[in-house]
Amino acid sequence: MKKIDRRDVLKGLAAGAGATVAMPALGGRALAQSAGKVVVGTWGGDYARLLTKNIEDPLLKPKGLEVVQDQAGDAPRRAKMVAERRLPRGTVDIQGFSAANMFEMNEAGATEQLDYSKIPNAKNLLPTMKYPYGIGHIYSGNVVIYNPKLISPAPTGFKDWLDPKWGNKIGFIDIQYQAIMIAASMAATNGASMNDIEKAKEILLAVKKAGARVYPTNEAFAQAMKNEEVGISAIWKARVVQWQNAGIPCEAVSPVEGIPAYVSGFVIAKNAPNKDNAYAYMNAMLAKEPQEAFAVDMGYNGTVSGLSVAPDLQKRIGFTPEEEKRIKDLDYAFLAKNDAGMKEWWDKVFKG
């Protein structure tokens, strides 16, 4: 199992602030058969829109590649991938998942073991973002988000977020159930464990009783923050930057209990019908221009070296040296084993 080493990650980010290195935008074997079709499984909303804006329209469609997005939450897309794994040909070529879910799909035997010779731009990929079964596309860390007008004093971590005193000003994002339960475990154990699910459940049920609200998507939660319907939650720091840029009143706090790392990446289905085009898609997402664009448009850190990121932006999307020490890797094996149970409890008990 591949872990995220924060020193390597931050080394790569630091490199991004320096001189730009030459990287091929597209090329090599990855584009040898790029004409045709590729079906991309992804979340909807902003991420899907920015994949189109920064990767598909400028780099792939001019090469004759027809991109079709299969938009859905990660749980149904994972279920479909597992259900189709024994078919000669699946229906989706490349899937976007968190690092934890990429690990899970590999354990399920549904992913292609990557041939990195077909991804020329992967030569610049940070070592910690290079998995045998997938690549990291962007990364950030989970932080507390709050509106200073509604929440005072400022929170210091997950325990302050999950304090029943905030009542219906506490917000949850449905599709982030896994990250929420990790944060609740850290709150319950003062950062000692990300895997104490039973203690996490106790804390979450207490805030549910106090009136906490659940929103179906990141976008729905953002609207609630904008309207001051809710005032505190937890989300990737990249999202805080994006919402600040959109004029939503919010600030970020790196939790004292630790900062869970978040990596969003892509895997290729073992039975992908357009495998060469899936490799072409991976190669394009690692090109310099889209990597820098995602930092600007979405506030995520890139996963390749040699990026040119403005110092003021790097300060907003990155972490201080003291915060770097609190970045924590996720236990992908634990999450793969327990995700189904976590999701069932979330849907039937917490939301029920």
Rank of each mutant, 00 (worst) to 15 (best):
P260K: 01
L31I: 15
L26F: 07
A234T: 11
T52I: 11
L204D: 00
N218C: 00
N101I: 05
P132M: 00
N124C: 09
D93E: 11
N277S: 06
N277A: 14
F350L: 14
A222Q: 13
K208D: 01
K275F: 09
N218Y: 09
E104V: 04
A183F: 02
Q178I: 11
M102T: 07
G16Y: 07
I232T: 03
P273N: 13
R213T: 01
K226T: 00
A224T: 08
G12S: 11
K165N: 03
E112F: 13
A222T: 12
A30M: 02
H137M: 11
V207M: 00
V67E: 07
N338F: 02
K165Y: 01
A210R: 06
I182K: 04
S98L: 13
V67N: 07
N301F: 10
E322T: 08
G109K: 09
D276A: 15
F158V: 04
Y332W: 13
T189C: 06
L87P: 03
S254G: 14
N338I: 04
P155R: 03
A108T: 04
R86M: 09
Q33F: 12
S152Y: 03
D339T: 05
R85D: 01
G211R: 01
G64Q: 06
R85T: 03
K270Y: 05
V82M: 13
K328P: 01
T91F: 01
A272K: 09
V207N: 00
E112W: 08
M225E: 04
A188W: 01
L162N: 00
H137F: 14
Y146K: 02
R85W: 07
K201R: 15
G44P: 04
